[in-house]
């Protein structure tokens, strides 16, 4: 398990390879303009403008309470569920304003999967967990469900471990397996975008490594936006990195440049571990 003390050392060995790709081939998918958000009177996000490209991994880093998770939840409108939230600015996904009144939030969320910090499988069987998303869309065909379940579990690198106990409870899996199950559940409905809110923060290093490998595999097919506390993780898996601090977007660039040559002093201080 690689655990370098200095993120800068880590960089030249692995990350630069992924980041030297020609990002022009990845079209912009999510455009956020001047997004601000208040919880009551507390300003959690302050004029965020970001452009996220398709089929790359974009990481949000920053100290606790900097608004990165809040921002992530704006992208699939999970903040709608919280009372007293006020949002200004715009979020366009594939040129559609997702905060427009005509947008069906349920349709939106079918296209944007989400993986949470704490693994939250339903207290149902492994099979039923994966099939849930399809079932609520009205898929009843047993063969189609079987196929989707197997494919999702294979994609999430969990199939081999659980194929003999698909119908036992998901609560019996280990923490790492549960988190991969949640990823499998999210990709079962074939979303375009997967949002990950610190997906590995509650896992041990081995399970974390598996999740990270999985993310690198998934970006071939999905657009992944990930929030992480762990800067090495951002450096290892992401193509773009955004640094949030106190509700503001401090810097946003390719991961390679962020970690080797940050434009802002604040970013450099944070990623070299001087604060945060």
């Amino acid at each position: 398990m690689p655990a370098p003390m200095d993120p800068l050392v880590k960089l030249d060995s692995r990350i630069t390879v992924g980041s030297t790709e020609d990002h022009a081939s990845h079209a912009p998918l999510i455009e956020v303009k001047d997004l601000s958000l208040w919880y009551g009177t507390a300003n959690a996000l302050d004029h965020i403008t970001v452009l996220i490209r398709e089929r790359v991994v974009t990481a949000f880093i920053g100290p606790s309470g900097c608004g990165k998770s809040t921002f992530l939840r704006c992208l699939n409108r999970m903040n709608d569920l919280i009372d007293h939230v006020r949002i200004a600015g715009s979020v366009h996904i594939a040129s559609q304003d997702i905060y427009s009144h005509e947008v069906d939030v349920i349709e939106l969320r079918k296209r944007i999967g989400m993986v949470f910090q704490k693994s939250n499988p339903f207290p149902k069987s492994i099979y039923d967990n994966i099939a849930y998303g399809l079932r609520i869309q009205g898929v009843r065909d047993r063969a189609a469900l079987d196929e989707a379940v197997e494919k999702s579990l294979r994609d999430a690198a969990l199939w081999e471990e659980v194929k003999d106990r698909l119908h036992s409870s998901a609560m019996g899996l280990s923490g790492g397996q549960q988190q991969r199950l949640c990823i499998a559940r999210a990709i079962a409905i074939r979303p375009e975008i997967i949002l990950m809110d610190e997906p590995a923060s509650a896992l041990d290093p081995l399970a974390t490594a598996r999740i990270e490998d999985l993310i690198l595999e998934l970006k071939k097919e999905f657009t992944i936006v990930i929030v992480t506390h762990n800067m090495q993780q951002a450096a290892r898996i992401s193509d773009f990195t955004a640094f949030f601090y106190l509700g503001k977007l401090v810097e946003y660039d390719t991961t390679a440049r962020m970690f080797t040559n940050p434009a802002r002093k604040q970013t450099e201080d944070y990623i070299t571990g001087r604060f945060g």
Binding site: I106, F116, N120, R185
Partner: peptide, 22 residues
Amino acid sequence: PRSYVQAALALGSSRWQAAWRI
């Protein structure tokens, strides 16, 4: 746990589906 509901909603459930099926 609210996390079940959140997971269900994030998968594109309506609130009723989340309440009834999860």
